[in-house]
Each structure stands twice: as structure tokens, then as C-alpha cells.
């Protein structure tokens, strides 16, 4: 199964990076959402794929059965999903406020921090 997952991960990364390089904040946001999926799936796949058996110990056993899925990447990914979502929300609000203030979602026109014709730095002491 891993090659299929690798293919999907590659596709997720490609699309996310393509969106990241857009000039429009809204596209970048979508890129961020997709990138988090890509990274999560990457970690999940690196822990190897197992079908259908969740990592839950049965009532009659003290240890996890050998056929169960690898719990470690799942634990890593679980928190990653939630944190990625919080950051996604933060980025969204950031973009939203920027649009309200600057009346554009085109990053080329957002030049508050780096103005187009920035004067040379002062030469005095």
C-alpha cells in the first residue's frame, strides 16, 4: 500500500506548494490546509500502513496484538491535526484583517512592512 500513499503524499505536497506560491492570500490559506494533510499523511505512512485494526488492546490481552496499527504516528498526527487547524484559523483571521485594512488579498500589494520605494537607511551615527 505504501507506494499509493507516497503518490498521494506527493500530490498533496505538489498542490499545497503550488497554492503557496500564489499571490492571493486565500489560495495560500488553502495551501496551508492541504499541506497539513500532506505532512500528517507522510508521518502516518512512515509508521507503516496496516489495514483496519485500530491500536486498541483487547479485553483478554495485556499487550497490543501484532496485527494492530502502529499507535505512535497516530498520537503524533492527532495533536498535529488540531494544532494545524488552530494555525489555519489564525492565518485566516490574519488574511481577513489584512483584507479589511488594505482592501486587497494580493500579496504584491501588501507593502506596509516593505514599501515599494523604501528610502535608503540613514547614514548618520
Amino acid at each position: 500500500m505504501e507506494p499509493l500513499f507516497a503518490l498521494l503524499v506527493g500530490a498533496l505536497f505538489t498542490v499545497a506548494i503550488y497554492l503557496f506560491m500564489s499571490k492571493h492570500i486565500i489560495r495560500v490559506l488553502m495551501g496551508a490546509a492541504i499541506l497539513s494533510n500532506g505532512v500528517n499523511l507522510l508521518i502516518f505512512t512512515a509508521g507503516r500502513i496496516t489495514r483496519e485494526v485500530p491500536p486498541i488492546i483487547g479485553a483478554d490481552s495485556d499487550v497490543l496484538q501484532a496485527s494492530a496499527a502502529n499507535p505512535l504516528p497516530q498520537a503524533l498526527v492527532l495533536t498535529a491535526i488540531v494544532i494545524a487547524f488552530s494555525f489555519f484559523a489564525f492565518l485566516l483571521v490574519l488574511g481577513y484583517r489584512a483584507f479589511q485594512k488594505l482592501d486587497t488579498d494580493n500579496s504584491d500589494e501588501m507593502r506596509v512592512a516593505e514599501p515599494v520605494n523604501e528610502s535608503a537607511p540613514p547614514l548618520g551615527y
Binding site: 488540531v82 487547524f85 488552530s86 484559523a89 485566516l92 483571521v93
Partner: peptide, 13 residues
């Protein structure tokens, strides 16, 4: 924490 933070974001938006 999750209820509060995510809920707060959703409500604020």
C-alpha cells in the same frame, strides 16, 4: 482547552 480555543475562534468569526 480545545472547546474553549476552537469555540472561541468559531464564535468570533
Amino acid at each position: 482547552v480545545v472547546v474553549g480555543a476552537i469555540g472561541s475562534i468559531a464564535l468570533a468569526l
